[in-house]
Simulated assay, not measured.
Amino acid sequence: MSAPLDCVVVRGLRLWAHVGVLEHERQMGQWFELDFSLGCNLSAAAAEDGLEQSLDYSQAIQALQLEAPRVRCLTLEHWSDKIFEVLEDLYGSVPIWLELRKCQAPVPGFCGIVAVQRSRRWPS
């Protein structure tokens, strides 16, 4: 039996990007919201109270905030791949889970939220 997976979790990161199937979505841009979890062993960080034994979430937040305004694509699926790349550049091949939400989908009569949930190396 494997040990439980510790995680660094970020919820509710608001990002402005130019993503959508409709031309005006890519031209004007819109708000999205991202939750992600980074799997890691946090035992040493907990015991030693040291950031160097953990994953510094501020680096991910800053990198994603910098990258998001440059994004221009049709789908959440494609953008989520770019998010994986940013996180993997920072932390290597750690398990990653994410949910990327479009805050205002342009569907008549619909005022909810649409999202994709994806993972890489996340235990099942």
Score class of each variant (00 low, 15 high):
V94M: 06
G20D: 00
L34H: 00
S93F: 11
V86R: 01
S43E: 15
L42E: 02
P4V: 09
P108A: 14
Q65A: 14
R72V: 10
P123V: 04
Q62E: 12
D81A: 10
S93P: 09
E25T: 09
S119N: 09
L66E: 15
F32Y: 03
R26V: 11
H24P: 08
A17M: 03
S2T: 13
R70G: 14
G29W: 00
R11Q: 11
G20Q: 04
L90A: 07
P123R: 05
S2E: 13
P123A: 09
A63K: 04
C103P: 07
R26Q: 08
R118S: 03
L87K: 02
A115C: 14
G92D: 05
V8W: 06
G109A: 07
S119T: 08
Q27T: 11
M1T: 07
E52H: 12
S37M: 06
Q104V: 05
Q53R: 12
Q27C: 10
L98D: 06
V114E: 05
W16G: 08
K102L: 00
S93Y: 11
R121M: 05
E99C: 11
Q65C: 14
E67N: 13
L55P: 00
F110R: 10
V114A: 04
Q30G: 00
R120T: 10
A3V: 14
S58K: 11
D56S: 10
F84T: 06
A68L: 05
W31G: 13
P106W: 08
G29T: 01
R120I: 10
L55D: 01
R101G: 05
S43H: 15
C7E: 15
L64N: 03
L22S: 01
L51G: 08
